[in-house]
């Protein structure tokens, strides 16, 4: 699937940002309300993992 380079570039950037923001944000909120300190890191790793998975599904598979 060879799509246009510019569209792929900005979509990948958008995927990375949204994964980090959503799950990292969820982790930060969990830390804030539960008083823990590890949920942020878990959220960030989960977020970057889901971003990579989506990028792989959308751009690299096939």
């Amino acid at each position: 699937m060879a799509m246009n380079d510019d569209a792929a570039f900005w979509s990948i950037l958008a995927y990375l940002i949204s994964g980090l923001v959503f799950w990292g944000g969820a982790g930060a909120l969990g830390d804030h309300f539960l008083g823990t300190h590890f949920l942020l890191i878990v959220g960030l790793v989960l977020g970057i993992g889901s971003s990579f998975w989506l990028i792989w599904l959308r751009f690299l598979k096939s």
Binding site: F9, I12, L16, F52, I55
Partner: peptide
């Protein structure tokens, strides 16, 4: 190329 870009940009 875009896999490498995604890994670096992360």
């Amino acid at each position: 190329a875009f896999l490498g870009f995604a890994l670096a940009e992360a």
